[in-house]
């Protein structure tokens, strides 16, 4: 019985389910009341963590593909990217609706006045066009421009790391870890790019 086109297609539902696990965990903790003394802060931190992790995972696919030779990995990229956008949206919604509920006048000022919120909000805004143009149809329609547009994701990930770094009071180890991951992924790209520079152009992904 053949349901899936190939192994990648067969694995996709599993990856999809895995990406939903953090959300399920959050919902479970909400229903059980096990988010600790400051549940809203927990919801914000955990949804934000997963947005950032999935964004970096999306960025990691291309280097991983080159490293392992498993070129089909690229087919998970859209799903991971969309889940990053999904968790970023959940993160923002929790902040707006659950945390600031009733204090929205404060929020409008916050986005402009607080660099860490400005940066985080900008990152979310920039993800919108990427999510909207993530379909096959849009890819075809935009042609070469699609790739230039989607390069934005590097900047977005950096904004996400910065958003985290700026809200921490003194212990910067965790945001710095995310920064290291980002830098490593960038360096990998730069190296491959410079190596590939001498060779004939590779086929577009």
């Amino acid at each position: 019985m053949v349901i899936f086109r190939d192994r990648i297609a067969a694995t996709k539902p599993l990856v999809f389910a895995l990406c939903l696990l953090p959300l399920a965990h959050l919902i479970w903790d909400v229903t059980q009341g096990t988010l600790g003394p400051d549940p809203v802060a927990q919801l914000e931190h955990r949804s934000g963590d997963w947005a950032l992790r999935l964004l970096l995972a999306t960025l990691a696919l291309t280097p991983l593909r080159r490293l392992t030779g498993l070129h089909k990995l690229i087919r998970f990229r859209r799903m991971l990217g969309l889940f990053a956008f999904f968790y970023a949206s959940v993160h923002l919604a929790i902040y707006l609706i659950v945390d600031l509920g009733g204090f929205w006048s404060q929020l409008l000022g916050e986005i402009v006045k607080r660099p860490y919120i400005t940066v985080g909000f900008t990152a979310w805004l920039l993800l919108i066009p990427l999510a909207l143009t993530s379909t096959q149809g849009m890819m075809r329609r935009l042609g070469r421009h699609w790739q230039s547009l989607h390069r934005l994701v590097y900047a977005i990930a950096l904004l996400g790391v910065l958003h985290y770094y700026w809200l921490v009071k003194a212990d910067h180890r965790e945001p710095l870890l995310y920064l290291c991951v980002w830098l490593t992924l960038m360096l990998a790209r730069v190296r491959w790019r410079s190596r590939a520079a001498g060779k004939p152009l590779r086929a577009a992904a």
Binding site: D38, A41, V98, G101, Q106, K113, P115
Partner: peptide, 18 residues
């Protein structure tokens, strides 16, 4: 880096989201 106009109160009978 952040506003001091409001605060999140941790008190009472435990789990409140709102």
């Amino acid at each position: 880096r952040w506003s001091q106009a409001t605060e999140r109160r941790i008190a009472g009978s435990g789990f409140n989201l709102f």
